[in-house]
Design a protein around this nucleic acid. Structure first.
Lengths: 162, 162
DNA sequence: TTGGCTGAGTCTGTCAAGCGGACTTATCCT
DNA sequence: AGGATAAGTCCGCTTGACAGACTCAGCCAA
């Protein structure tokens, strides 16, 4: 029943895609910032208040997301005020939609609220709800137990130095 | 061009599904732990070494994930050793596959490695690579710019107390 | 032209959390 | 009895989060 030595034990974790992605996203606040941008809130002060982030942390996270290419600063000007900047998702940022939608979907299933889901991703054109689906190249849509995460071409054998 | 007041500004963030999901997953280490479990590494010491997590932190994270219902402890016994416990994903945990796969997919696209992807999710039956797809109820598969995250039935108006 | 307002920060001191390394416990083997 | 091992617990240091005060630039109204 118990695999004596799981296959993965022979492979290094140092270049794992999940780790590398988590170095960018893997922070309590980063997802809150992204959520705000995805729902259309783009200004420093609005993001800060809605997400409840300490200013300093927000400053730092926005800078990091810009540096990583997920956001860009965009000048705007309200009538009778000076020019300021808002933050917008780049294509790389927008391509996190599947991650966000998958998280919403999981949360709605396992942490449901009485009143129903508070936020819903929808297709702009038809107004229908959007969800994520797992699909293999052959067109099957496997359930969770039919999937395995295996080493790929870039996998490195693990060093077993003490 | 700039939305003067984004629609989302009128809605509360307090019960947001992403926040609630992030209260469980939103931690630098939790995803590393989940990755190990998804690739089949289940034992405390193996997880600790591979993920490079401080023992204390691992202890705490495993306990939290168990309490939240994503993992369960499962007794095992190696020949000539006493009984110990390993950690396995529950159905709720396995249902995070779409989140993990979406993250791998994003990482492979935007943080590619020379040697190709180090880990690949595949369909056990046919061996083909699995990816996530966004799909609406009407069967369309919208791109990132065709999606909007809108308030749903459970959305609460925001309190504007200072 | 002075003074106030506002958005977007920076500065500062406190306190919790992460961290590496040493120590502990329980069981099995020789 | 002595040693090995998995899974922790304990300890002190350092890093980061946090709240709250302060700054800065440009615009407005008086």
């Amino acid at each position: 029943m118990t695999a004596q030595v799981p296959e993965a034990m022979s492979w290094s974790t140092e270049n794992c895609t999940i780790s590398r992605t988590m170095q960018i996203l893997g922070d309590k606040w980063t997802f809150h910032v992204l959520r705000e941008l995805f729902v259309g809130v783009r200004r420093f002060e609005d993001i800060r208040v809605r997400a409840g982030i300490p200013r300093q942390v927000l400053t730092e996270r926005l800078a990091a997301l810009i540096e990583r290419g997920l956001l860009r600063r965009h000048p705007y000007r309200l009538p009778g005020q000076r020019e300021r900047y808002e933050y917008r998702l780049t294509q790389a940022g927008l391509d996190l939609y599947p991650v966000l939608v998958a998280m919403i979907q999981w949360g709605d299933q396992y942490l449901p609220l009485d009143g129903g889901p508070p936020i819903v991703p929808q297709h702009r054109e038809c107004g229908e709800q959007v969800s994520v689906v797992l699909r293999c190249e052959a067109g099957h849509e496997p359930g969770a137990r039919e999937i395995a995460i295996r080493p790929g071409p870039g996998a490195k054998p693990r060093e077993l130095a003490s």
